[in-house]
Write a protein that binds this DNA or RNA. Structure first.
Lengths: 192, 192
DNA sequence: CGATCAACTTGACAGTGTCAAGCAATCCTA
DNA sequence: TAGGATTGCTTGACACTGTCAAGTTGATCG
């Protein structure tokens, strides 16, 4: 039962997540998080250096979770034709955002977090790789095969991420007050 | 030379903008803004109610500026065929984001600002209207005319906005460290 | 002339992130 | 087995923050 990572750090991370969800905003205080765990006000500082350190760790964890969610979706749809699988992947991406709105915003945004952080970068690249693989599969069946893999992946990701973050930021409500995010997800992924 | 809006309020707004640009972050303090103008620490509170009030006003102003930028682009390209004009519009949108990175993020983000604000909503709808008009023009030449105007506009906007905000949030750097935003803008707008 | 109102200021307060120092337990080394 | 270093925190202090409440000062107006 040895613990390499002290469990207080893990508890703080969990508390940070809970606090973000409870407050519905990324603007949470380290002291409130510490209070939630029942440790001193400086405990977060001790483990994560500073505010940005904690939020970056949380963002990395959520990005990783997104990547795993996408991989699971891929596996579950292994039997589907490549292009349908790709559509489902886009929907899954948007679904993740809708289920964890504030956490997705935190992970997607540059604000407050350290963009150079190695864990976060790795998590992003891993997530990205899932998409690229799916696009490659689709291209091998002829879809958009006149364009480069990178360009096509960029386009797919831009569309899907754009819809997800626009919804999370409340931008779609202004122009499409009647449309649900599920409908938008399908519209957008199909349109390609 | 009568002034309906006291010039201190305008000065505060300008100072807020300057402060965001100087700090490279939306996380600016009201007191720092007041100091910049040389008024009391509570002057921003007096005119804008609270922090969110000031930032919302700034976001609305920037959104309006974006709309005007797009309209100017449309006028400048009036001679072009509709589809080229639409592409140029997308590039102009992204260009605006790159020229005022932090301000664009502020305007695009829901964070810190009051989403219900009437000025902001109006500015967003006006900006949106420019895009819809351009898409309608393109559709009237047969482009994507099998789909509804709304759906097509949604797709265009999602792609362009997605690329802009992803760049502004530093997400593209992770996957495309070598690609400039101008190249991405062209790739993305052309891909449709 | 007196009241009202707008345009601020002043003061206070609870809360914040972070620096610096402390402290107790555990581990390494000699 | 003694003693120094390291780990895992806590405690205290500080400058700074947004916001509430209560002034103040000058113009407007009946």
């Amino acid at each position: 039962m040895e613990k390499r990572i002290p469990d207080v750090a893990a508890a703080l991370l969990a508390a940070a997540k809970a606090e973000v969800l409870a407050k519905g905003s990324v603007d949470v205080s380290l002291r409130a998080i510490a209070r939630r765990v029942g440790v001193s006000h400086q405990a977060p500082g001790h483990f994560f250096g500073n505010r940005s350190g904690l939020l970056t760790a949380l963002a990395a964890a959520e990005t990783k979770r997104l990547g795993e969610h996408l991989e699971k979706t891929e596996k579950a749809n292994a039997a589907l034709p490549a292009r349908e699988r790709l559509s489902a992947l886009g929907v899954a991406y948007i679904q993740f955002a809708t289920e964890h709105r504030e956490l997705f915003r935190l992970a997607a945004r540059g604000e407050y977090i350290d963009r150079e952080n190695a864990d976060l970068t790795q998590a992003r690249l891993d997530t990205w790789a899932v998409l690229v693989r799916a696009v490659a599969d689709s291209q091998s069946t002829g879809w958009r095969s006149d364009q480069s893999l990178e360009d096509t992946a960029l386009l797919c990701w831009t569309v899907v991420h754009g819809a997800a973050i626009a919804w999370a930021d409340g931008l779609l409500e202004t122009q499409f007050p009647t449309l649900s995010i599920e409908e938008i997800a399908i519209k957008v992924t199909d349109a390609l």
